Deep mutational scan, measured.
Amino acid sequence: MGFKLLSKLLVYLTASIMAIASPLAFSVDSSGEYPTVSEIPVGEVRLYQIADGVWSHIATQSFDGAVYPSNGLIVRDGDELLLIDTAWGAKNTAALLAEIEKQIGLPVTRAVSTHFHDDRVGGVDVLRAAGVATYASPSTRRLAEVEGNEIPTHSLEGLSSSGDAVRFGPVELFYPGAAHSTDNLIVYVPSASVLYGGCAIYELSRTSAGNVADADLAEWPTSIERIQQHYPEAQFVIPGHGLPGGLDLLKHTTNVVKAHTNRSVVE
C-alpha cells in the first residue's frame, strides 16, 4: 500500500471513529477524501466538511520552486461564519470567499490569524475590503508590521502568557507558548472536538522541520505538551499544512522538532 493511500485511509478511519463516538456532533463529509496538494491548482481553494458547521479550507501556493498546501478553518456561528487564517495570499483568499459563498452561503463576518507569517495573514486586506472584521493577538499584529505583512485590524486580548485561553464565538483560542513562531495560536472547536494546530503542528508525513527561522526550538516541545494537557479530548487535529489526523500529530511534531534540534547540535 502506497504512503499517500495509507495517509488518506488514516484520515478516513479517524473521521469514521469520530462519527461513531459522537453521532450528534459529527456529520463528516462523505463526498470524498481530504484534498491534497496535487489536486488543488494554485489560485483555487477546496472546502472539506469535518463536522456539522465545521470545515477546513485548503489552498496551495508556490514557494521556492515548489507547491505547498495550506489549511485553515471555518466555523459556523449562528447565521454567520468565523474564518481562521487566510488562504495564503490575496488571490487565494478572494477564491476562498467565493467558494464559501458557493458552498455554504453564509457571510464571513470575523477572521482570526493564528500567527504573523504570510500563509496566515496574506489576504487580510481582501477580507477587510469584503467587510470582514480581522483579528490577531497584539504580538501577531506587531510582528506582521515588522515583517511588512498585512496586519489584522483588531487585537485579541488575554493571550499574552503561555497557557492563556479565551473564548471567541464558537471557538476557544489558546496560546501554548512559542513553537513554530513566538505568537502562534491554537484554535479548538469544543462542539466538535476539532483542534486546529496551525503551523505549530505537523502532518504525519512530514519528517523535516522546514521553516524554523522564527521558531523557538527549545520551547516548542513544552508548548505541545500544554496543548495535549489542555485538549486531551480532541479527536480531529488539523495541521497548518497537509493531512489531518488525531492527537498523534502532536507527538510526531515533537519528535521531528527534537530530531532537528539534535542534528543542529551535532553539526
Rank of each mutant, 00 (worst) to 15 (best):
S62N: 12
S139W: 11
R76E: 10
T93D: 00
L9Y: 13
G246P: 06
V54A: 05
V42Q: 10
G131P: 05
K91E: 15
H230R: 15
G158L: 06
V45L: 04
S161W: 10
S205R: 07
L81Y: 00
G198V: 06
S181G: 02
S70D: 02
V146G: 14
D216Q: 09
A200W: 04
V237G: 02
I40Y: 05
V212M: 09
H57K: 02
S193N: 13
E233N: 13
V146D: 14
S31L: 10
P152V: 01
V124A: 08
V187E: 04
A90D: 15
V45I: 09
L127Y: 04
H180N: 04
T86I: 06
D214N: 10
R263D: 15
A165G: 11
T114P: 00
R167N: 12
I100Q: 02
E147H: 15
S56N: 15
A51V: 12
T261Q: 13
I58Y: 06
L81V: 11
Y68L: 07
L249Y: 04
F236D: 05
W55R: 03
K251P: 14
S70W: 01
P41I: 07
N149D: 08
S7N: 10
V67Q: 15
T36L: 09
G123M: 03
S181F: 00
D164E: 10
H154N: 10
C199L: 03
G210M: 04
I186L: 06
T114Q: 00
T261L: 13
L249H: 02
A192C: 05
V11I: 14
Y196M: 07
M18H: 15
K102L: 12
A218V: 13
A136K: 04
G43L: 04
F116G: 04
L185V: 10
K251L: 13
A178H: 10
A21M: 14
P170S: 09
T60N: 10
S31R: 10
Q229S: 13
I224E: 03
A200D: 02
G43S: 06
L6S: 15
K4Y: 09
W220Q: 04
S62P: 08
E150M: 04
I74A: 04
H260R: 12
A59G: 11
T182K: 13
I20Q: 11
V67K: 15
L10S: 15
P152S: 05
S162L: 10
T253N: 02
I84N: 01
A51T: 10
W55N: 02
V187C: 03
V126G: 04
A21Y: 14
I201H: 05
T36F: 09
R206W: 12
L159H: 06
S38C: 07
A129V: 09
L247P: 15
I20L: 11
S38L: 10
D29I: 11
F116C: 05
I227V: 12
T14W: 05
L195T: 00
D64I: 08
P35K: 07
V45G: 04
R206K: 15
F174Q: 00
G240Y: 04
